[in-house]
Amino acid sequence: MRSLLTRSGGVGTTVLWVCGLALLCLSVAFTITIGPADIAVPNVWAVVADHLGLGDSGLSLIREGIIWNLRLPRTVLAAVCGAGLGLCGVVMQSLLRNPLADPYVLGISSGASTGAVSVVILGLGSGVATLSLGAFLGSLCSFTLVLVLSHVVGGTADRVILSGVAAMQLFSALTSFIVMSAGDAEQTRSVLFWLLGSLAGTGWFDVASCLFALVVVLLVCLAKATALDAFTFGQDAAASLGVSVTRTRTVLLIATALLTATLVSSAGAIGFVGLVLPHAARALVGSGHRGLLPTTALAGAIFLVWIDTIARTVLDPQEIPVGVMTSLIGVPAFVVILYRTRKTS
């Protein structure tokens, strides 16, 4: 796979980002209009302008409510989650030197789910621990488990993935067990949310907390972009290039765990975005992280906005968990990527 654009990060990448941002805004505005209520793209702009204090939308309260309180936060959260999961995927793939690493495959998302349901359903740390804190501790637990387990069984790239798969199964099972043990029909249905993800019923608070985590972690990762490049030939190579390996790894792994946890608390465990999007972004801008990190985030955002739209409309009025759609579309895309890398190497 050769990159399609200049890789020096020059004009080509900047143009790509501007186009990507424009495409993202258009996608958000357009996908909001898709659905049972009759809404047009100009209505969306008007409502946004209204809430930014730039004049009155002139829409009925109900239609305005549908846009501002239902569809807009959901779509923006889809964009933020897509960007965040893509970002986590790139960082994990580079740090662990493994093209298959991503928060879902490595069980980090499942760990976050387990942590969250422990707080919500079991009432662990009652009063003190919030859902997000539970998710964060859960994701750190699973991350530690994967790293320790893979170290114990040999530490090679395939062992990391096998440990991740084991952790994912374990934590998914734990989540299901905790949810089922509550014996409450309402909560039993929520197991789908925690295992497959859903962006339904999102409010602006979720959007704000996820966006905050995304921006902070993106800045941290960008500050470490050159260090991430240095990991290309392994830890010792990174150290010999002047990178503090332990500190860089710790900072970045905690940052990605934190971001994953925040996303999972709001949207459940969504798979495949972090796995597939970094490969697509690498095909566009090459392997340098200064270009790769923002590109992956943008691609992930656009991708999940559309995937979520399909998930909520394809079997209308029934909704499909977004994780089902990401896998249905992500797996064939992944096979194509694997096939293309096979041909050149």
Binding site: M1, R97, P99, F233, D236, R282, T341, T344
Partner: peptide, 9 residues
């Protein structure tokens, strides 16, 4: 190093 390699293209 003796055997430097990478999976990255």
């Amino acid at each position: 190093e003796q055997q430097a390699d990478t999976g990255v293209d």
